[in-house]
Design a protein around this nucleic acid. Sequence first.
DNA 1: AGCCAATAAGCAATATAGTTGCATTACAAT
DNA 2: ATTGTAATGCAACTATATTGCTTATTGGCT
Lengths: 144, 144
Amino acid sequence: MCHHCNYQELLTSVKLETTESRLRVLEVVGNNSFPLSAGDIYKTLERSVSINRVTVYRILDLLVDHGIVERLSTGGRSAYFGLAPNDYHQPHPHFYCKQCGQMDCLNPDSLTVKVESLSKTFPGRIDKVEIRVDGICKNCLKQN
Amino acid sequence: MCHHCNYQELLTSVKLETTESRLRVLEVVGNNSFPLSAGDIYKTLERSVSINRVTVYRILDLLVDHGIVERLSTGGRSAYFGLAPNDYHQPHPHFYCKQCGQMDCLNPDSLTVKVESLSKTFPGRIDKVEIRVDGICKNCLKQN
DNA sequence: AGCCAATAAGCAATATAGTTGCATTACAAT
DNA sequence: ATTGTAATGCAACTATATTGCTTATTGGCT
Ligand SMILES: [Mn+2]
Ligand SMILES: [Mn+2]
Ligand SMILES: [Zn+2]
Ligand SMILES: [Zn+2]
């Protein structure tokens, strides 16, 4: 767990009741150093606690809606989940290996984006800018 | 059709035989000013020609593999397709409206990314950088 | 032209990820 | 303890994409 994050507090900070399941889901997401799919999160939880697959999906939706978890698209079919940016975690781009499906967090400064000009002129509402780098990871590269 | 693109030529330029179906799919993708889902492309084609849904998926995969069509992830469940960047079409970010699912192409300069530092140090292979802006489009905004 | 091999397209079945409706359980307030 | 509300479980379902196999089309050859 990130020493800045108390998951219990994180839940109450967005006015969500703490339940065992919510805390477990948030722990799995937060304790992991890279984003995970809903399926990964479910499989991880299943090993230690009893929880339903649908509950995992619902809790993830809930945490995303409340802004403490971020849903990331991939080059593949499923979304991945990580802790949302906050005071202690800057927004940052991710790398997605299209071979093994592993997603990695990149340094916030490794790719920077200038969003001001767009924000000024864009006629709609902008909620988020997602930057994803696609390719083949180091491990998969050396296997070939 | 973009006056720079001859779709027939585009196919032969990547050593793909021209078939009626490939040409039709590429036309729909290329003639559209914003990216479309496989389903949208299929529905469009269906109106005028007889083609199978699976064929559309296969052709899209093929065109993506050959680098003339680009697959874009969305905040939603399906991928969208547009012409891949080439000499006449710079890479550019996209806007995705999470309400209506419309995707729009943004100006190549509206968001710029510095990828050099990452390319130098990143241990894997980088194929693509995808930038997606999520939010609510102008039309959906005024409906509420 | 006719034949053959290779490739493309069609069709049905299947896979995968996520969602919905409704029943059951837990839990907080009274 | 009772009750109302919200969370979770379970089964069925939806949307999107993929697979295996059959049929049709194409291009090269004679
Ligand atoms: Mn991250
Ligand atoms: Mn575009
Ligand atoms: Zn990999
Ligand atoms: Zn919209």
